[in-house]
Every structure is written in C-alpha cells, then in structure tokens.
Design a protein around this nucleic acid. Structure first.
Length: 598
DNA sequence: GCCGTTTTCGGCCCGACTGTTTTCAGTCG
C-alpha cells in the first residue's frame, strides 16, 4: 500500500463524512483531511512507520486512525473505513479529482442522475451536461453547467488537483511571471508564495504576491498576462489564471503596509499556518493575511469584522516578532517543530548556496567506457567552471568502467589514463583541488564493481546502487552498508534511488544506516539532480538529528548542470541543515583529511 | 478524531471568490 493510496483512502473517508452530515461529523472530517494531508507531504513510506510501530508519530494520526490503518496494512482493508465509504456511491470519488468538484457537488450529481459506474462517471456526466440537464437542477444554472463542462474538458487534458511540477520547471514559469509583474507600474514589490517560496521538491500552483496602492490596476494587468489560456477568478484582492500546460497562477494583492502578513499567510504551509493560528489564539489574537487582530469578547460573540483593529505588518519579521517568535525561513515552515524553535530562539542557521565550496559528483566526457552514462564536457571545462564558481575542491566521479566489457587490468588502465588527464588539468587550475574519484556500483552481493587494484589508485570513491532495486529492506540495507564499508568508499550517492514521480526508490533501515555512517565517518549525498533530490528533506532532517554528515552534489553530466547545486541546497535547507552538517562547506584541509582518511 | 507552555477534556484557522441566491453553500488555499 503506497502513501498515495492511503492519502486517497483517507480523503475519500473525509468526503463520505461530508456527504453524510457535515455538521455532525465536522471534526472527523477535519481529522481525516489533516491525516491525509500529513501523509501526502511525507517523503518516506507510511508502511515503514507502521513496521516500526510508529504510525501515531505522524502528526494527525491518533489512536483511532492508527487502528484503522493498522487494519488496512494487516488485512488489506479496514471494516470501519469500508463501512463509512459504503454510505456513498463509489462513483462520486473519481469526480473529486476534477477542479471545482467537492464532495457535495459530486454526490449531488451522481445521485441526481443515477451515475453508478466509477469508470465512466466523468464521461457520463459530460454527456449529461452537454444535454443541458445540469442547468435545470435547483442550485445550478447555465454558468455552473458551462463551468462543469470546462473543468471536465481541462481535466481530460491533464489538469487536475494533484498534478505537480518539479521545482526547476516551476521556477522557470515563476521567474517569467514575476518578471512580467515587476513591469507593472503599480507593483511596488513582487514575490512568489506557497510551495514555490518554500522550495518544495514539487510544486502545484504558482502563487505570486504583489504589494501595491492600486490593487485594481495590478489585477487588471495580471489577467492580461500574454501567456494565459483563460481567467479563472478575478476579485478585489486575488485573481487566478490558467496558463498553457494547465497550470494555475494565483495572484494575491495587498497594500504595502500589510505585505508582510500577506507573504506570511500565503507562503504557508497550511500545516504551519494552522499551528501558528492555534498558538496565536491562545494569546487571544487572531491571524489573517491582513495582520493580527486582538480578540475581544464582542468580536468573539458577534463575529463582526473589525478591520480597524487589525495591526498590519509590512515585513514578515515584524509579523513573527509580534507573536514573540523569531522569523522562520520559508523552507522549514512545515509544522515540524519550527514554531517551537522560533519561540525558544533555537532555530537553525540554515546553509546557503554561497557556503558551498565543493562538488564531488561530476561526470566528465573522458572515455572511461563506463557501466552507465558518460558526461558531455571535458575534465578541463568542468574544472575551469568550478574555478568560476569559486569552489576550492571538486571530484570527478565517472561511473566505473563496465565490468562486463573489461578485465581488471583494462579497468585499471582506463582509470590511470583518466587520472593522468586530471593531473594535467590540475596544473592549470591551481585554485581548485581536484580529487580522483569514481562512482562505483554496489553490486547486489554488496561487493563493489571494481577491484582493489583500481580502488587503490583513487583518492576515494562514491558508491551507489544502479541495479536490482527490488530487494527487500533488510537485504538492501546489508548491501549498501557492505559497499560503504570499503575504506575507500566515502559517500553513498542518491541513497534511495528514487526518481520523483517515476520510481519510488528502495527502502532502507535508516536508523541502522545512520548509525553506521556516523560511526565510520561516511557521508550521505543530497543529489541535486531535479528528478532525484535524494536524500529527501525529511530524511535529511533525520540524518542530521543522528549526527550524520551530508554532502550536496550535482551529479553533473554537463558543465551547465553544475548550476543545479541550488536545488540541493534547497533540500538541505528544508531538512534544517546548517553549514557544519554539509561537507562541501568545510575548509579545503578538513575536506582533504576526511576524503583521504582510511 | 486529534491534541496539550492554561488542558487527558473541550476545544478545534481564516478568509476569498463564484454562482445562484436575496443571505448562503460549496470550493479552494
């Protein structure tokens, strides 16, 4: 059972409760949604938590949901959850993936028109809408019928609530729109918001904030964005457009004086904001995107809007400080302890891109006849670029020469030839120390793919898994630790092997691996390749808490890819990494003695 | 159904926007 399946299950339970009686089940609905969202944002598998007996360590999972999930893991289903789901027609669930469809609308339509087949329900509904039958229902009209048709057609083209982009792709779109908005004469300040600002590994919608004295003009300017497909919403303070590719861009506008509150509010995460508001309520203040409002007896009972009493903030620092908290970097606003740390002034001083002085995972074009892909640029080109980046250390880590096609002696000769080129390049790039590494496969047996005679002519090696991903957790852990045990092996590259949205990666006994790495001074890699970002933020945080050192590498196969380092730093920041936790920020001599230690 | 720097009971974030409505329901973030 994957996380995605559990997320679907729990959100469907919440939807079923909403249909049954939203008022009566209000808090169950909130609880199931909360649990579902918490699991969605996990980057480890819930089954792991279950196996370790730590299901309720997940925020939002308490005794009751824990019991139901345990049933699901043990028996494939939970009697209780099945019972709840059975109160509504299962044909309503596929509709929930379509934008603008919630539980009420989905239920109403499938019951009203007796749509019972979940497999065809979307097409069936489309047919009915085209016949003009929806507009005749109470509470619906021609416009909502039209909107339903549009939503279904866009859904058919891949627009749905859950589709997300990887960070670099989203960054490209965001940069364009930010650039466009900055040219709006009335825009004083322009910032991204949401998961984009928090640098999550995948991004849903792009959210942009603008500070202005003239919201109307800014919103008019925004909805005229030349690359838009159509306008989704347009109000006094917000607007939303759809761009080609089915991505939403949301705009939030606010006066300069309350821009800090706006940034805070829409940067989220949702979990962070909920926690922050709960905390604020205890201090008798209420938070919104406009600022902080003192709760009086009158406003409690009458629910009157007392905007004149709202204290506004032009910066986020002032907003957080007003609550007695230190400013919290956007990357760690996930309700994983940052609010408590801000309260006690114990927030980490997160690593920054400028701290990075090394990159150990570079694939050059040297014809080493590798087991996997070769790089595109020469050792010299890449070393020169490292100088430009002001690095003091780099390492060439081509894949080891293919075992299948070469004898031990041939492999050794190839590596010697490569080392010779490195020596030549080292003479002309004095400011960067170049290490002779390889990226060596850890075979299913746990042995390394190259012989000691080859390993001995290296400064050190990165090791990684590139085959037989389907081993069980125990065996895979043994395999990895075995590979990492070689005295020349210093770094475990892309430790889970996952590819975002393509391949889940293999499971490891993390506590065992962390303990091993700490004891033997091995590093785990944060691979900055956009589809890897492996280790993930959550595992980074766990590793750091166990005292494991990490290294951020780009895994570059071309010189331009050396710029991907920023995405690795984003992951490290999201994992609460400080400079000291990341080996490529260390001074050159410290790196040298670590890398060459045996 | 979850959760704890007032608490193991009694609370539970806050608001915008749209369509179909004469004051609100549904959806979204």
């Amino acid at each position: 059972m994957t996380n995605a399946e559990i997320v679907t299950l729990l959100s469907h339970v919440a939807a079923a409760y909403s249909v049954m009686d939203e008022k009566k089940h209000y808090f169950q609905i909130v609880a199931y949604k909360k649990a579902s969202e918490a699991i969605e944002s996990m980057s480890t598998q819930l089954t792991d938590q279950y196996e370790e007996g730590k299901l309720d360590a997940v925020p939002g999972i308490g005794p009751s949901i824990k019991k139901h999930l345990t049933d699901v893991f043990e028996n494939g289903k939970s009697q209780h959850l099945e019972k709840v789901l059975a109160t509504v027609p299962s044909s309503m669930f596929p509709l929930l993936d379509i934008p603008s469809f919630g539980p009420k609308k989905a239920y109403r339509l499938v019951t009203e028109f007796h749509l019972t087949n979940p497999k065809t329900v979307v097409q069936d509904l489309q047919k009915i809408a085209k016949q003009g039958k929806i507009a005749k229902l109470d509470g619906f009209g021609p416009k909502s019928e039209h909107d339903i048709l549009q939503a279904i057609s866009e859904y058919g083209m891949g627009v749905n609530k859950s589709s997300r982009m990887v960070l670099p792709y989203a960054s490209e779109i965001a940069d364009k729109i930010v650039h466009y908005m900055k040219r709006c004469p009335q825009a004083v300040q322009v910032e991204t918001l949401g998961s984009m600002r928090r640098k999550k590994e995948t991004i849903g919608d792009i959210d942009v904030a603008v500070a202005t004295k003239d919201p109307k003009k800014v919103i008019d300017y925004f909805v005229n964005y030349p690359y838009k497909d159509r306008i989704l919403e347009k109000g006094d303070a917000t607007a939303s457009i759809l761009i080609s590719g089915g991505k939403h861009i949301d705009l939030m506008v606010q006066p300069v004086g309350s821009f800090g509150s706006l940034l805070q509010h829409f940067t989220g995460s949702k979990e962070h904001n909920i926690k922050l508001r709960e905390y604020a309520l205890k201090k008798d203040v209420s938070l919104s995107e406009y600022g902080i409002k003192k709760i009086t007896e009158k406003s409690k009972t009458q629910k009157v809007r007392e905007s004149d009493q709202t204290q506004t903030y032009d910066s986020e620092e002032k907003f957080y400080n007003a609550l007695g908290l230190d400013w919290i970097p956007p990357e760690i606003r996930e309700n994983t302890g940052e609010i408590e740390a801000a309260l006690h002034h114990t927030l980490p001083k997160l690593i920054e891109l400028k701290d990075i002085k090394a990159d150990f995972h570079l694939h050059s074009s040297f014809p080493i006849e590798p087991s996997h892909d070769l790089g595109q640029d020469t050792i010299e080109t890449m070393a020169k670029y490292a100088e430009k980046l002001k690095y003091h250390s780099i390492g060439f880590s081509e894949h080891n020469p293919s075992q299948k096609n070469h004898t031990k002696e041939e492999m050794k000769r190839l590596v010697e030839q490569r080392n010779h080129v490195i020596d030549q390049v080292q003479k002309i790039t004095k400011s960067v120390r170049i290490y002779k590494l390889l990226e060596t496969d850890i075979l299913p047996s746990g042995n390394l793919a190259i012989d000691n005679s080859v390993l001995n002519i290296l400064d050190a090696t990165i090791v990684s898994v590139h085959s037989v991903f389907s081993m069980n957790k125990n065996d895979m852990t043994k395999r990895v630790i075995n590979g990492l045990s070689h005295k020349k092996a210093k770094i475990l590259a892309h430790p889970t092997g996952r590819l975002i949205d393509k391949r889940p990666g293999y499971e490891l006994e993390w506590e065992e691996l962390f303990a091993f790495c700490k004891k033997h001074n091995k590093a785990l890699e944060i691979n900055a390749w956009p589809y890897r970002l492996d280790l993930s933020d959550i595992l980074v945080k766990r590793a750091i808490s166990k005292g494991v050192n990490l290294v951020i590498d780009t895994d570059s196969h071309a010189v331009s890819q050396m710029n991907l380092m920023r995405y690795g730093v984003d992951v490290a920041r999201r994992g609460w990494a400080e400079k000291k936790n990341i080996i490529n920020t260390w001074p050159p001599e410290k790196i040298r003695s670590w890398l060459l230690s045996t």
